[in-house]
């Protein structure tokens, strides 16, 4: 594999509040290479979006404390978007790294035409008048599969459906040919039928532009469709990181096993109830000692010396390229997988 385009190292984002310091994302490390899709999976509040907003430099530095590194390996040399000046990072946004968001209904400015908004993004980094910008916007709309692009480029966001707006967002994000695209739950707000179209589009665009893609989602079904590797986040930490097949066929963390169990599956016996993960994620202000997932984990009793309650497990490489943050041994995990029926 070539050198990764993005290297995130020990990224920690916390927000001071009146109740205490909220550690929204805690010591996160991962890499993404061009042409590769990394899925970041986790439930609400697990720190997925916070991490990606930190990479993009979109946190308000007055309210967020950020440490660690997020290095973009640009042709001109590496830049750490965490320590670089806001102005330097701003000039990377939209050009080297772009982002699309969850709710396409509210992510476009209601007062400007689609063409205006795409051309604004393009003209920021290209010499060209408004006419050239609109022409470029039309090309982009065409590329992302919006029929009648020449006419629709002059329309306003409210004249588009949700799926079409997300296409517009993608067109706008890709207009400057970025090397990294962060898609923050791009299909969550869309109809199921539209979801797979958007995922298909993202996949095609990734090939077309040879981008590194970070796909943030809570939907493991989405992950299976497009990801090469998966990071599973829980309570601000990465608890498991592995290739796509490993995640589905030999999940190495009880949380991942729980997530897989909670997916409805067509191939399973009728009448089988979905297995929910009991309990709630812990408060990010006062994380419990030891493993954050302990109180919801049905296997923690198998670990000797009450280790789960006292020691935070490290993100260990159990198999090559497969990392997991769990005290259970590989044998115990195998039994856990089989006993819950997560893996056939």
């Amino acid at each position: 594999m070539s050198q990764p385009f993005l290297e995130v190292k020990n990224l920690t984002v916390s927000f001071p509040t009146e109740d205490g310091l909220v550690r929204a994302s805690n010591d996160i490390s991962f890499t993404v290479a061009r042409g590769e899709t990394l899925a970041v999976v986790g439930e609400s509040g697990s720190g997925k979006s916070v991490t990606s907003l930190a990479v993009m430099g979109l946190h308000d530095r007055r309210s967020a404390q950020i440490s660690g590194q997020a290095i973009l390996n640009l042709e001109s040399g590496p830049i750490d978007t965490i320590s670089a000046s806001p102005d330097v990072v701003r000039k990377l946004r939209g050009k080297s790294m772009a982002m699309i968001f969850q709710d396409p209904m509210s992510a476009l400015h209601p007062y400007y035409t689609i063409g205006d908004q795409i051309s604004e993004a393009w003209r920021l980094y290209n010499d060209g008048d408004k006419k050239a910008g609109i022409k470029r916007a039309t090309e982009m709309l065409d590329l992302v599969g919006i029929p009648g692009a020449a006419k629709r480029v002059l329309e306003y966001p409210h004249q588009f459906s949700g799926g079409m707006r997300q296409r517009v967002m993608i067109a706008m994000a890709l207009v400057n040919n970025p090397s990294l695209l962060i898609a923050d739950e791009p299909t969550t707000a869309l109809d199921v039928t539209v979801q797979s179209q958007i995922l298909e589009l993202l996949k095609n665009m990734q090939k077309e532009f040879n981008m590194a893609v970070i796909l943030i989602t809570h939907d493991l079904g989405v992950v299976a469709e497009v990801a090469d590797r998966v990071s599973v986040m829980y309570a601000g930490k990465i608890v498991e990181q592995a290739g796509i097949d490993d995640i589905y066929y030999q999940p190495d963390h009880p949380y991942t096993i729980g997530l897989l169990n909670s997916i409805p599956r067509v191939d399973q016996l009728e009448g089988r109830r979905l297995i929910a993960i009991p309990g709630q994620p812990p408060s990010l202000i006062s994380l419990p000692a030891g493993c954050s997932f302990r109180s919801r984990c049905s296997f923690s009793s198998q670990v000797p010396n009450n280790l789960c309650a006292t020691a935070v497990p490290d993100l260990d490489q159990k198999i090559s390229g497969h990392f997991s943050r769990c005290h259970l041994t590989e044998d115990q995990l195998k039994k856990a997988r089989v006993s819950t029926g997560a893996v056939l």
Binding site: L58, M99, F101, H109, E120, Y125, M169, A173
Partner: peptide, 8 residues
């Protein structure tokens, strides 16, 4: 936020 993500 979108405008900011564009790099404006």
């Amino acid at each position: 936020r979108t405008a900011r993500a564009k790099g404006l």
